[in-house]
Amino acid sequence: MVDLDVEEPNSGLFVKGKLEETNPVYKMVPVWEKDKCTFCGNCQKVCNFNAVIQLHTQVLVFPKLCHSCYACSELCPTDALPMKPEKIGEIKTFHQDNLTFLESCLNIGQEMAVQVIAHTNKILEKDYQGQLIIIDAPPGTSCPVIEAVKDTDFVLLAAEPTPFGLHDLKLAVDTMRKLKKDFAVIINRFGLGNDKIWEYCQRQNIEILAKIPNSRTAAELYSHGKLIYKQIPQVKQEVLKIANKIRQLSGEPK
């Protein structure tokens, strides 16, 4: 299991286990070497992100704006902007029984969530290939989500049956279709709001995999950091449907 909601990683509040290791995530940023600089202005010219600014007597680098494209560094005629690593987050690895849990986290004040997600994806590809991986993805429809779901085989979209939930679900569906991903919907807090989400899924021919019933007890259990399915049988029944689907997708028998 991997938490890729790097801005607000919360899975670890419910699943943790024993901390095995912590690995820093770096991004490469240019560092100005005054002695080599001829003030030709090329670095500022090639940077599309305003991360390198040349003043009269110095070159300023703004690491938070840098996308690590290397253009300023490699196109500098005097090698005055070598790339050096800067820490922007970390990945913690936990073990609990036979579950490995990776928590990927962006440092506060850093803007580039995508770079931390991309780095975590590389680790997954290298060290966990062939294993079943469940990812807790970030919200929204922009670059962090795209990076998190890019390499996945199947996407589960969790939505609430309210107008907000339906509106955001439609955006999520459009995003997954654009990425050409297979997906299904899980309705959370089922019973709340109205039937519009169900109607939408019917119309669009989208599979509703499970309906997690709404209850105050579920909200209370969640608030304490407890796993809801362990205490509410109707929730467990729905979670098992999701688990079965995942088993089926990964080629395991039911």
Binding site: E8, N10, L13, I108, G109, Y222, H224
Partner: peptide, 14 residues
């Protein structure tokens, strides 16, 4: 909730 408090602490730091 556990996540509410956790997120509040992180966003407060910002």
């Amino acid at each position: 909730t556990v996540s509410g408090l956790h997120d509040l602490q992180r966003v407060y730091e910002l």
